[in-house]
Amino acid sequence: MILTYIAIVVALFFAMNIGASGTAASMGAAYGAGAIKNKRLAMFLVSLAAFLGAVLGGGEVVKTIGSGIIPSNHFSVEVVVIILAGATLTLFLSNLLGIPLSTSEVTVGSIIGVGIAYQSLYTDKLSIIVSFWIIVPVLSFFITFTLGKLIEYAENRWNGLKGQGKWTKWLSVLLVVGGCLEAFSAGMNNVANAVGPLVGANILSEGNGLWLGALFVSLGAITLGGKVLETNGKKITRLSLLQGSTVSFTGGALVIIASLFGLPVPLTQVTTCGILGVGAAKDGFIMLQKGVIKQIIMVWIISPLASLVVSYFLINLFARPNTYNLFIIVSTLVATIGTIRLSQIVRKEKRATYDEGGGI
């Protein structure tokens, strides 16, 4: 019974981090474009919209997370704690760094780690999910890039569309509505990442899980979402009101469609790629060289692998103790860290040699 309560507590903490990461990013375009200047108001609106999305439309993705990747009979209380711990740890660290991270990737990665440990994965369903992790963000980029070119032409011809004069109010309203739509889609798609394992293990019913998860996602968006909102809204590229609306409506529509088919997709990647699309249309592809873009891409690649390794390690440590597997994992980790550290030392010594005028 105590382990059950621990599983629920970890899931709710995870839900708060989902609100801080994926949900808060939904209003990044509106905040960056200046449609909402008050950060607290922006976070309140996304929390409300995400709550409604989770309650009204989150059921299909919950089913996928709870029984579509690995057989539901593997979802014991102990395994649920391990899945959520692996995903939560990865997401929490990314929030401390202020990096928008896909909760879908860390959750699915954590479940895959369990499936590998038990040698039981629905590979057909998993291949579809992973392929859509690539397809949907890329589609978002090209849609917003195309629309961004049209918007650039229209704004140059009609200055009012840049948010000047009487058009400012209405374009701002349009962008805020788009941000709320995107947050609604976040609720549909991402809340399942926290409560899906609980539903799969029959710890909570689907309805109770959605209501409870929605509540804590909203709480997380308000209390922890500030850094991610700043990253998506201000550090990637500045958007006009019309450009921001394009990002929000495109991302929201794509994620809602995926949610209706029960596919957990990386909302934050969809949003960020949309911002990059309009940014590339406006400033050219040179803006893709910005350091924050490289950092986000690195976290996207590492995050599912990190949560996979963590959950696989915990399964072999607690659920199915296996000394040999633990030894391999620890040895690989030590070798990787050692190699990175050694390369840093070598580069530092080379720089010191060149600076002192020595060497060949």
Rank of each mutant, 00 (worst) to 15 (best):
M1D: 13
I2P: 07
I8L: 15
V9F: 13
V10F: 14
S21W: 13
S21T: 15
A25G: 14
M27F: 14
A29E: 10
A30N: 07
Y31P: 03
Y31D: 01
G32A: 07
K39P: 03
K39D: 03
R40E: 12
M43P: 03
L48D: 01
L56V: 10
G58V: 14
G59I: 11
V61R: 02
V61I: 13
V62A: 00
G66N: 04
S67I: 08
N73E: 12
N73Y: 10
F75V: 01
E78F: 00
V81N: 09
I83M: 10
T90I: 11
P100A: 09
S104R: 04
S104T: 14
E105R: 13
T107P: 00
V108P: 00
G109D: 07
V114R: 01
G115T: 02
I116W: 03
A117N: 05
Y118Q: 07
Y118V: 06
S120Q: 13
D124N: 14
D124R: 11
K125Y: 11
I129F: 04
F132M: 11
V138F: 13
T144P: 10
L147G: 05
K149Y: 10
E152K: 15
A154C: 06
N156P: 08
N156G: 15
R157A: 01
N159I: 14
L161I: 14
K162Y: 09
K162S: 12
Q164S: 07
W167M: 15
T168D: 08
L171M: 11
V177P: 00
G178M: 10
G187D: 11
N190R: 02
V191F: 03
A192G: 05
A194Y: 11
V195T: 12
V199E: 05
I203H: 04
N208P: 02
L210D: 04
W211L: 15
L212E: 06
L212K: 06
G213Q: 06
A214L: 03
V217R: 03
V217W: 03
L219I: 15
G220L: 02
T223D: 03
T223F: 15
G225E: 04
L229Q: 02
L229I: 10
T231D: 09
K235G: 04
K235W: 07
K235S: 11
T237V: 05
S240W: 02
L242C: 06
L242S: 02
Q243F: 02
G244S: 01
G244C: 02
G251K: 02
L254F: 08
V265Y: 00
P266S: 14
T268Y: 12
Q269H: 15
V270Q: 04
T271P: 02
C273S: 12
I275H: 02
D283W: 09
F285N: 11
F285K: 09
Q289V: 04
G291Y: 07
K294G: 15
I296K: 05
I297G: 04
I297P: 00
W300T: 09
I301S: 01
I301L: 07
P304T: 08
V310C: 02
Y312I: 01
F313D: 07
N316D: 09
L317S: 15
P321S: 09
T323N: 12
Y324H: 12
Y324R: 07
N325T: 06
V330N: 10
L333D: 00
V334D: 03
T336F: 15
T336Q: 09
I337V: 14
G338A: 03
T339D: 09
R341I: 12
L342C: 04
Q344K: 10
E349Q: 12
R351A: 13
R351C: 01
Y354P: 00
G357S: 04
G358R: 08
G359H: 06
I360C: 06
